[in-house]
């Protein structure tokens, strides 16, 4: 079985976000980078599928040279190969991103590598476009299931569940298929020291994707980012009800006031 997992490098933001001076990016001078938790889980799922079924796993990203770090992080937990579709670091819109991924998968097929499963995160952590997996699946003529939080693969059929209204919806598709995965499908392992060392030495296969220009060649791409903006904050002043256990009566008074204390 061959599994491809697609990930995106994003800044690891914490308590507060500041923007670059042109307001087109997050100011990342003091930040580390990561991938979405959904994609960490997709990567873990790929490793488990290969451990259980044999075969090979590949991680792919569209991003700058620095995204090699995220590819190596995936190889450190057991992904076999890594492909970097190298950009100049500008954010690509979801239409252009999916076209580049489809081109890369077709190039793999031409070189004799076909995939039984294409795994994605349900949505990228930063842009949250909710569509790349679907566009890739349609272009390749494959079935696609989104929001997957539980997966079983047996006899060439994937059974996937996703949360719906407090319960679950169950889907079944024959392979090859595309799955967009959510955090919670598994608990990703931590990389081991030997895993990290191995990943450091591994080769990253690179190519330069062809951008699909908005408005130019054929159908439209986008949405096209103009600028970023922080939402208006409603930062009130916090009222300190007390310190330590002595604060309990004041807190319970508050619970009574807002009417959540059952009698």
């Amino acid at each position: 079985m061959n599994v491809l997992v697609c990930v995106k490098r994003v800044p690891e933001t914490g308590g507060r976000v500041t923007l670059s001076s042109d307001a087109r990016e997050i100011d990342t001078r003091y930040l580390g980078f990561t991938v979405s938790p959904h994609e960490e889980c997709a990567t873990e799922e790929a490793v488990r599928l290969i451990e259980a079924n044999g075969g090979s796993s590949t991680v792919l990203t569209l991003g700058p040279e620095a995204a090699s770090d995220q590819l190596r992080a995936a190889m450190a937990i057991g992904i076999d190969r890594a492909i970097l579709l190298e950009t100049d670091g500008q954010d690509w819109d979801p239409v252009s991103t999916s076209v580049a991924i489809v081109d890369a998968i077709r190039a793999e097929a031409a070189a004799g590598v076909s995939y039984d499963l294409l795994l994605f995160g349900n949505e990228a952590a930063d842009s949250g476009d909710f569509q790349v997996a679907i566009r890739v699946a349609l272009a390749l003529g494959l079935p696609c299931i989104n929001g997957v939080k539980s997966l079983a693969v047996k006899d060439g059929v994937a059974t996937a569940r996703r949360e719906a209204g407090g319960g679950w919806e169950v889907f079944e598709v024959p392979l090859p298929a595309v799955l967009a995965v959510r955090e919670g499908i598994n608990l990703p392992r931590y990389p081991s020291v030997p895993g990290r060392l191995r990943a450091k030495k591994k080769e990253i296969e690179r190519s330069v994707p062809v951008a699909r220009l908005v408005g130019a060649m054929g159908p439209a791409a986008g949405p096209e980012k103009i600028r970023l903006r922080l939402p208006a904050e409603t930062e009130g002043r916090v009222e300190i009800l007390g310190t330590g256990a002595e604060a309990a009566p004041a807190v319970v008074d508050l619970l009574e006031r807002i009417g959540v204390l059952a009698r």
């Binding site: 933001t13 976000v17 997050i26 842009s127 908005v214 408005g215 439209a220 791409a221 986008g222 949405p223 096209e224 980012k225 103009i226 600028r227 970023l228 903006r229 922080l230 939402p231």
Partner: peptide, 9 residues
């Protein structure tokens, strides 16, 4: 937690 102004074609 962040907003984007974008053009949609």
């Amino acid at each position: 937690s962040l907003l984007e102004e974008a053009r949609l074609d």
